[in-house]
């Protein structure tokens, strides 16, 4: 196609970017159940079916304590949902999962059935990054699914650029670090150096189960179980991989760009 044809094509098709966040969010696909909701009160006293079935040992049920589901380690296989006899764990079909603190991802206790969503950055950082956030991505030995779903945000449907969020090549140009993958020992130095190269003020976003807690690779001697131990993380976005909508929601929430009142702020 020549330039002329491209221009004509574009003119014919008009604007194809989705209306979100000014409009409703697109629906999640059927297989994606959204965030999990854990109502520990519904659990049987001696039942630990979900604990044994979880492939990443994300669910713990210490004796005498209610069940605790760490969404950060969850790979959203929904086995626990299937096997739970009392429907204590359910899928909420909510795409919103990003949090600021690691503890906010542990569900189960009363009052903590669902994630406590991320708060925006403080005033000063919001003024700096609110309309222009440049991110440097570090792919730390993962499977690349998180990178693929992040990449999708750059297409014309999602158009990350309209929020002023952009991926840059050099950490010197970046405001924030987006880490994916469980951070192998080989990538430790690169990650640390990238972080040091970021000028302050800077933020770190851990994207995906691997980056938060090591994902399927947790406990492997060649891995560091995610980025939390190496660099201070400001935003955790769980998922394996997280849906682009989740990622976008997390980023916009961080920057207070969602523009709607949300009960669970």
């Amino acid at each position: 196609m020549s330039v002329h044809d491209t221009l004509l094509n574009r003119l014919k098709r008009g604007c194809e970017t989705m209306a979100y966040p000014k409009g409703p969010a697109p629906a999640l696909p059927d297989r994606h159940g959204g965030a999990l909701k854990v109502e520990a009160a519904k659990c049987d006293a001696s039942c630990s079916a979900c604990v044994t079935v979880c492939p990443t040992e994300a669910i713990a049920r210490p004796a005498g304590k209610p069940v605790a589901l760490d969404l950060g380690r969850c790979i959203f296989c929904a086995e626990c949902v299937t096997v739970c006899p009392t429907k204590a764990i359910t899928q909420s079909n909510d795409h919103r999962m990003a949090v600021r603190q690691r503890e906010d991802l542990v569900l189960g206790d009363t009052g903590k059935e669902q994630v406590r969503l991320a708060q925006a950055l403080d005033e000063k950082l919001r003024r700096l990054f609110g309309r222009s956030l440049k991110l440097r991505q570090v792919s730390a030995a993962g499977c690349n699914a998180c990178e693929a779903d992040t990449n999708v945000l750059g297409t014309i449907g999602w158009d990350l650029g309209r929020f002023g969020i952009q991926f840059v090549a050099s950490p010197r140009h970046a405001d924030g670090l987006l880490i994916t993958g469980p951070v192998s020992k080989n990538m430790e130095l690169a990650l640390k150096k990238t972080y040091i190269a970021l000028p302050e003020p800077r933020i770190v976003i851990a994207l995906g189960a691997c980056a938060i807690a090591g994902g399927p690779f947790i406990g492997h001697p060649q891995h560091h179980n995610g980025a939390s131990g190496l660099v201070p993380v400001d935003l955790f976005i769980p998922g394996c991989p997280p849906h682009p909508l989740t990622i976008l929601d997390g980023l916009l929430r961080l920057l207070d760009r969602l523009g709607e009142s949300d009960a669970r702020r």
């Binding site: 950490p171 010197r172 130095l189 150096k193 990238t194 040091i196 302050e200």
Partner: peptide
């Protein structure tokens, strides 16, 4: 402005 002296960016190499 705070000045921080850091090594030259070397793409994360050794």
């Amino acid at each position: 402005a705070r000045t921080r002296i850091a090594p030259t960016w070397d793409c994360g190499q050794r």
